[in-house]
């Protein structure tokens, strides 16, 4: 038995594959590589697979991690090529290796957001956004697991933010908390819509670019 970690990207059409469906997809792809995913020993054996930080549906990422256990001895070499011939469009394996660090050391998500403004970026937008996120506290409403709305202060979950402007959009470079609790970067758009309704973007695109540890180093 070996524990392995897979680094993969999830973009374009694949960003609409939900977390559960992604797990199913992996269970089908691995048999084609000749690797046997270990199964639990219960009454209904299930594959031992876990996505380190599930990605919200509709967002894309170039830094997803999947932890798995396989029956064979393997250091992960050769697996990337085999996987890539059997993935749906938009999923791509980038690296596979024996993990050195526990998942709890994952601290931050680095993401690139695009706030799209169909009628052009409003004048002074960037400055006002910077101003907004300098506030000591930013309360937004968020759906809880019980589907109720709860007030959450997202400010402490933001480590850094920077804004720049392009034709019709504001680019946002964000580093936010990954877990316990984490922040879905898309909620930055919600905060704008709530506090500065006239600057509410028409659409928010989110792309995860890196997973970081406490020191801001790449977590892999």
């Amino acid at each position: 038995m070996s524990k392995l970690r897979l680094l993969f990207s999830k973009e374009a059409q694949a960003s609409y594959i939900s977390h559960l469906d992604l797990m199913r997809t992996f269970q089908r792809v691995f048999p084609r590589t000749g690797l046997k995913i270990s199964h639990s020993n219960g009454f209904h054996p299930h594959a031992i697979l876990s996505v380190v930080l599930p990605l919200p549906v509709g967002q894309s990422s170039v830094c997803e991690l999947l932890d798995l256990t396989v029956d064979q001895e393997s250091d992960g070499s050769g697996i990337v090529e085999k996987l890539n011939s059997g993935f749906p469009a938009g999923l791509r394996a980038l690296d596979c290796y024996a993990p050195q660090r526990p998942v709890r050391e994952l601290a931050f998500v680095q993401a690139e957001l695009q706030f799209l403004y169909d009628a052009g970026v409003p004048a002074g937008c960037t400055a006002e956004l910077e101003e907004l996120f300098r506030r000591p506290s930013l309360i937004i409403q968020k759906k809880t697991k019980r589907r109720e709305l709860a007030d959450v202060d997202i400010r402490p979950l933001i480590r850094s933010l920077s804004f720049s402007e392009e034709e019709g959009k504001v680019l946002v470079q964000a580093v936010v908390a990954a877990q316990n609790p984490g922040l879905n970067p898309a909620l930055l758009g919600n905060a704008v819509a709530k506090e500065l309704p006239e600057l509410a973007p028409d659409f928010v695109r989110v792309r995860r670019t890196a997973l970081l540890d406490e020191n801001g180093e790449i977590f892999r």
Partner: peptide, 11 residues
């Protein structure tokens, strides 16, 4: 939404 985008394996 996954059912509206195509791109499945073997499509």
């Amino acid at each position: 939404p996954g059912r509206y985008v195509g791109g499945e394996y073997n499509a």
